[in-house]
Design a protein around this nucleic acid. Structure first.
Length: 271
DNA sequence: ATTCTTGTTGCATC
DNA sequence: AGATGCAACAAGAA
């Protein structure tokens, strides 16, 4: 489920734990979310430590603890973060719980377990955090960087390219479709066919969609306005809110893709 | 019963 | 070497 803005929304679900100290760590050791992690070291390091704060970047979250330890969380496809009190009924897929000194429980729930946790004892930021590329809303995300990346992935559909986290951190299936719909590019257009004007438009629209998502969804999980593709893309039979024509849904780049044939035509990218 | 899923990775192939 | 495409991971919903 979670892309850029939803990730930040879930990060803040754990805010009630900030300033509190970890009393116990409960980890379902059979759950895949802990794969590759030394869970004993993680539990040892976090118990007795105060949660200082958190940050989100791309689809990743980092929770920082006193003493310099970092807990990383990636929500995968179906993960979510919850905060409950001591009376909270555990659910079937509570795989990781931080029990805090005031009785609050910070819970990572993930039925499909494509998500994962990571750990770094510190000091300093972990390698898996440092290597997250510049955010789309940052100064480091330039037209030149986009242009070079599109050239390198020349034979791949633009839809598949926008899903590559190494260059478009935080973009997921619905955001990629939203960008292409707003900018008027066909999802099957080849990345290498994008001309200078088209690259600039793509860059501008990426920033616009990220900013809109952070403003609307990250704030309180409001439903996006009906003027976005978002509300019309999920089921067969939807109509384009701009062209008022039927939307099309088909697999592109291995993912279900929704676009408006009336306003996303092949060839527009060659400008 | 069958098919679908808002993500990532590892592997085979080009 | 680098680019490309696809299966696999797992569980719930429609």
């Amino acid at each position: 489920m979670p892309e850029l803005a939803e990730v930040d929304y879930f990060r803040r679900r754990w805010n009630p734990g900030v300033g509190r100290t970890v009393r116990a760590v409960h980890l379902n050791r059979r759950a895949r979310i802990g794969r590759g992690v030394d869970v004993e070291a993680l539990a040892d390091a976090l118990v007795g430590r105060k949660l200082l704060g958190s940050q989100a970047a791309a689809k990743q979250m980092a929770f920082r603890f006193a003493g310099g330890a970092w807990l990383g969380v990636h929500l995968g496809m179906s993960g979510r973060l919850e905060c409950g009190d001591a009376e909270r009924e555990p659910t079937k897929h509570d795989h990781f719980v931080l029990e805090m000194t005031d009785g609050k429980r910070l819970v990572f729930v993930d039925p499909r377990q494509f998500g994962r946790i990571q750990f770094w004892p510190g000091p300093g930021a972990p390698p898996w955090w440092e290597k997250i590329p510049p955010a789309i809303l940052s100064d480091g995300f330039t037209v030149g960087v986009v242009s070079a990346f599109l050239r390198r992935r020349a034979r791949t559909s633009i839809k598949a390219v926008l899903l590559m986290q190494e260059r478009f951190p935080g973009i997921g299936n619905w955001m990629a479709d939203e960008v292409l719909w707003r900018a008027g590019f066909h999802p099957q257009a080849k990345a290498g066919d994008f001309g200078p004007a088209a690259v600039r438009k793509l860059h501008r629209t990426l920033r616009e969609v990220c900013a809109d998502a952070m403003r609307v969804i990250a704030k309180d999980w409001s439903d996006p306005p009906a003027t976005w593709l978002f509300n019309h893309r999920w089921a067969d039979g939807g109509r384009c809110p701009r062209a008022k024509q039927p939307l099309r849904r088909e697999e592109v780049g291995g993912r279900t893709t929704c676009w408006s044939p009336a306003r996303q035509r092949l060839g527009a990218e060659r400008r």
